[in-house]
């Protein structure tokens, strides 16, 4: 169609492609609205509040938070907030311990499950159960297990042949250990599940060919399985890093972030200042800062992964 004859053309019924685009738009609309509703508007609200000293106890509704305008003071306070940085450091520590341990345990278990053996299906079904237990329930479960008169000490006592009454959850170091054990218990199955899917995808003929050429089990893993598993391993690790960073439910129920602040991770810290201190202007600033850092980290990680894949 040229411009000249356009005005003369009769109204054209929508072509199939246009028709499809219209339906596509309508179908995606609810999801788009929900994303806008949860992402764009709240983020703008959060940005606004973060520039004020507003609190729900301030006596005015949030739109009038400008009355408490304090510019970027909240953001400059972040740098001096020792408790925040300690919580971030603790979150990093938990991640640095839990994710590698979960990865290695999951991978080792997955390796045992590559070929068939009697009882495999049942064992598999049981091994993936922990990740389906409601995390909060897992929290109550481990809270019971780690009581000083509880079964963990009971079991240790039986093994060592003497009474053990370790106060797991009220010792700053042991509380952290207990929280990590719970996380490892619950999420090793996820690593196992994903890595096993990856291992099963490694062509068995290539593994056999390598065996026949004299490669040892470790050499086969390193030279044949690993190169193919790289992407899957990155996905598994990424998922756990992201989820572990959010660690809250199990930990909060087990220790409430304590004793003191010994197990206070970033989510616990934000929860505490949100519900106890109620300094929402400041909390908004923390939350936004974390969102920005996470976004930058995600973009950086994706670029690196893209380069690694190429």
């Amino acid at each position: 169609m040229t411009l000249a004859d356009a005005p003369l053309a009769p109204p054209v019924p929508p072509t199939p492609a246009e028709d499809g685009a219209r339906l596509g738009f309508r179908l995606t609309l609810p999801a788009q609205v929900l994303v806008l509703f949860i992402a764009v508007f709240p983020l703008l609200m959060q940005l606004y509040i973060s520039l004020t000293d507003w609190s729900p106890l301030a006596g005015v509704a949030w739109p009038r938070a400008w009355e408490f305008w304090n510019g970027f003071a909240n953001y400059s306070d972040l740098a001096q907030d020792g408790r925040l940085w300690a919580a971030l450091g603790r979150t990093a520590l938990v991640m640095a311990v839990c994710v590698p341990v979960e990865f290695l345990l999951g991978l080792s278990l997955a390796m045992l499950f590559v070929d068939e053996f009697p009882g495999k299906r049942v064992a598999y079904s049981i091994l993936i159960m922990p990740m389906m237990v409601v995390p909060a329930v897992a929290g109550y479960m481990f809270f019971m297990l780690f009581q000083s008169g509880g079964p963990v000490n009971g079991l240790l006592g039986t093994l060592l042949g003497r009474d053990i009454a370790v106060a797991w959850l009220s010792d700053p170091t042991l509380a952290l250990v207990a929280v990590m054990i719970a996380d490892i218990w619950q999420w090793t199955p996820l690593m196992f599940l994903i890595l096993l899917a990856g291992l099963v995808g490694v062509p068995q003929d290539q593994m056999r060919a390598a065996t026949l050429l004299g490669a040892s089990a470790w050499q086969r893993f390193r030279t044949i399985a690993l190169p193919r598993m790289k992407t899957i391993m990155i996905i598994a690790l990424a998922i756990r890093v992201i989820e572990n960073f959010k660690i809250f439910d199990t930990l909060y129920i087990m220790t409430g972030g304590g004793p003191g602040v010994a197990t206070e991770t970033i989510s616990v810290y934000i929860y505490e200042v949100t519900t106890q201190d109620l300094i929402w202007g400041y909390v908004a600033a923390i939350a936004l800062a974390i969102l920005v850092i996470l976004s930058v980290a995600a973009v950086w990680a994706m670029k690196r992964m893209g380069r690694a894949a190429a």
């Binding site: 003929d205 290539q206 056999r208 060919a209 050429l213 004299g214 490669a215 030279t223 190169p227 193919r228």
Partner: peptide, 24 residues
């Protein structure tokens, strides 16, 4: 052993394939 589907290590070069057994 030569497999029917060859079971070539597709993520390696021809040289790496040929030398695989010797290297391992």
């Amino acid at each position: 052993f030569v497999f029917q589907n060859y079971a070539i290590f597709t993520h390696m070069t021809v040289r790496q394939n040929l030398s695989y057994g010797l290297r391992m």
